[in-house]
């Protein structure tokens, strides 16, 4: 029964994707919707992403410094560890999971509320492809998600630098040397490739949860919770697969 339901859900998700990319909404309306989604999803997340990244970068630097007991290990490791942690995992993966909570819940609850109050039926009756109208602008807006992740990387490293240097754990020279040590440009490519995949998951899985929900206000809340769980699970799984494919 569980497997049958899972197969049905996967099927309905892919059918939804097919409908999202067909029956396009009028261009001028779509353009406005995309700008609105960029404002809601990307601009609206700048503050929280900046805040979390800056302080987590600082904490990574401090914890690395506090664990450097062996005098043979250079202090430049603080900069190196901060860079690697931020670029490889924290910014792309963990910011995406945090965004699954923030953006994902917002997307599910807004589409779910429209379902409950018959607003989606109203679009369908008017002959508008409600999936294209509601989901496509979110996918386009979230193609700017890598900009948020780039900001997160930059602020995380900045936070690490300030905490490391002004906390007295390392010097500017050592931190910068660590940042430059064994730098692999492909790591950035890897981070941004997975960021695009996570952005697509972030736009579509919560939309699917909201669009196909049944019931009332209570179910909107449940759908938002499910949305967070499933988006996080898919981000973690795809992170593993992409890492295996690109880095191993």
């Amino acid at each position: 029964m569980v497997i049958t339901n899972l197969i049905k859900d996967i099927g309905s998700y892919f059918i939804m994707l097919k409908r999202v990319f067909s029956g396009f909404t009028k261009g001028s309306v779509l353009k406005e919707l995309i700008f609105k989604e960029i404002d809601d999803l990307i601009i609206g997340s700048l503050g929280i992403v900046a805040f979390i990244s800056f302080f987590v970068g600082g904490v990574i630097a401090i914890q690395t410094a506090l664990n450097l007991e062996n005098p043979l290990i250079p202090k430049s490791l603080i900069g190196f560890a901060t860079r690697q942690s931020m670029i490889l995992e924290f910014a792309p993966t963990f910011i995406s999971i945090i965004m699954a909570g923030k953006m994902g819940s917002f997307i599910t609850s807004s589409i779910g509320s429209m379902r409950v109050t018959e607003q989606i039926d109203a679009l369908d009756v008017m002959g508008i492809n409600s999936l294209n109208y509601l989901v496509f602008p979110k996918i386009v807006a979230l193609m700017l998600f890598p900009l948020l992740i780039a900001l997160s990387m930059f602020l995380g490293i900045t936070g690490g630098y300030l905490a490391g240097v002004y906390g007295g754990f390392t010097s500017t020279g050592e931190f910068v040397a660590g940042l430059q040590d064994s730098f692999e440009p492909f790591h950035l490519t890897y981070a941004f490739i997975k960021t695009f995949v996570f952005a697509f998951i972030l736009a579509t899985v919560p939309s699917w949860q909201g669009y196909f929900m049944k019931g009332g206000a209570l179910e909107v809340g449940k759908a938002s919770t499910n949305s967070f769980v499933w988006t996080s699970v898919l981000i973690i799984l795809s992170n593993y697969i992409i890492t295996q494919l690109l880095l191993s």
Partner: peptide
């Protein structure tokens, strides 16, 4: 496009003003 529908709960788009709601079919 030739069909108008009045839903039980109104089904007005709550993120739009009254003017935008009524204008919606014309814009589309």
């Amino acid at each position: 496009e030739e069909i108008g529908m009045l839903f039980q709960g109104g089904a007005l788009f709550d993120s739009m003003t009254i003017e935008e709601n009524v204008m919606f079919p014309l814009r589309m």
